Simulated assay, not measured.
Amino acid sequence: MTPPYFIEVLAANGDVLQRQRVEHLPIHIGRGYGNDFILDDAHTAERHAVVESDDNGNLVLHDLGTQNGVIHLGKRQLSVPLSGTTVVRLGHTRLRVRDAAFPVPPEVADTTMHAWEGGAPALAGVALIALFIGAEAALVDSDTESFQTIRYLLLIASGIAGGLVWSGLWALANRLFGGHARLGRHLFILGSGLVAAGAWRVVSNVLAYAWSLEFLTRYGNLVTLAIICGVIFFHMRTIKPRHARPLLKGCTVLMLLGSGLILASNLQSSGRLADELYMSVLLPPAVRQSPDHPVRDFMAEAAKLKAQADTARARAGKAGVDDDDGD
């Protein structure tokens, strides 16, 4: 082992909370001021442990007969060999000890958009939220042809306030687990997600009506759910940019569970998996691009449905008669 030595206090997720350099061995650890490394932990003793070198020159941590001891891999140990990756718990404090020769991983490429910080993404996010709220209100009022400025302003203000609360919670998590709040980025992520959801709603309705692609509206809630999961993914990736793969897996599982709940709810309420039984949005005829079907095709389909209904009714009646005969 090569001096100096470094004692690191770790968070539960492995992040380094504190690092102290010690020039020599042995290293005394405890709550008392006479130690080389002082623990601010009421669950540790005045002289809790000592780090020494064994006969082979490797570091070993010894418990000094304390009440709570030294915990390694969930078990109390009197002595624990330290390899540099070994994590021990003293009271409520997680520690590891490394020497100056401990290898570090290669430099990570900096993919952070440092120019996209602070006010710029915040203003863009607020603008996108306002755009979404205003466009949604305009679509709702398109049938009534009424425009009330104060109503629009109140809706936009309430929407921005809600967006600030949502983004503020993510910024708080970012501050706690990522070191920086990045409120502006979280506002931009939320605004982008809302605009994407609104754009999908408009585009799916137009495509479904123009080319008879009813599945776009019948299962449109699944796409909206995917957009929501995408927003959550980018929020979490802003907090932990190096954990993109596990975060993506978690959001995928969330989307699959949510999709199952949506389909099950549709099946229970209407007997079908689709969100709606028929296309609920009708646009001007000029938007229609799919060729019209002649009346005879409609009558033929209606005759098939009538035949199926008659057959089902006859079977139900026969089953009722058989039950009466059995009684």
Score class of each variant (00 low, 15 high):
Ala42Glu: 08
Pro103Ala: 02
Arg89His: 08
Gln77His: 14
Ala45Pro: 11
Asp41Cys: 02
Arg96Leu: 03
Phe234Ala: 00
Ala137Glu: 05
His235Cys: 01
Asp143Val: 04
Val9Ser: 12
Glu301Cys: 05
Asp143Leu: 01
Tyr152Glu: 07
Tyr209Ser: 09
Asp15His: 12
His293Gln: 12
Ala319Val: 01
Ile133Ala: 15
Asp63His: 11
Ala109Trp: 03
Leu277Asn: 11
Leu267Cys: 05
Ile156Val: 15
His293Met: 12
Pro294Ser: 04
Ala302Asn: 11
Ala286Val: 12
Ile7Trp: 09
Ala115Leu: 11
Val108Pro: 09
Glu107Pro: 06
Ala226Ser: 13
Glu276His: 10
Gln18Phe: 05
Lys318Ile: 09
Pro105Ile: 03
Gly258His: 02
Leu305Trp: 07
Gln77Thr: 03
Ala302Glu: 09
Ala319Ile: 02
Val88Trp: 07
Glu46Thr: 01
Ala135Cys: 08
Ser142Ala: 04
Thr311Val: 02
Cys251Ala: 15
Pro81Ser: 10
Asn221Ala: 15
Ile262Asp: 11
Val203Trp: 07
Ile227Val: 13
Ile71Ala: 10
Phe298His: 13
Asp292Gln: 09
Ala196Gln: 07
Thr2Asp: 10
Gly57Leu: 00
Ser265Arg: 14
Thr311Pro: 02
Gly74Asn: 09
Gly30His: 06
Val165Cys: 09
Phe6Asn: 07
Pro106Leu: 01
Thr149Met: 13
Gly179Phe: 05
Ser212Gln: 12
Asp54Glu: 03
Gly271Ala: 06
Glu8Ile: 00
Leu95Gly: 12
Gln268Lys: 10
Thr112Ile: 08
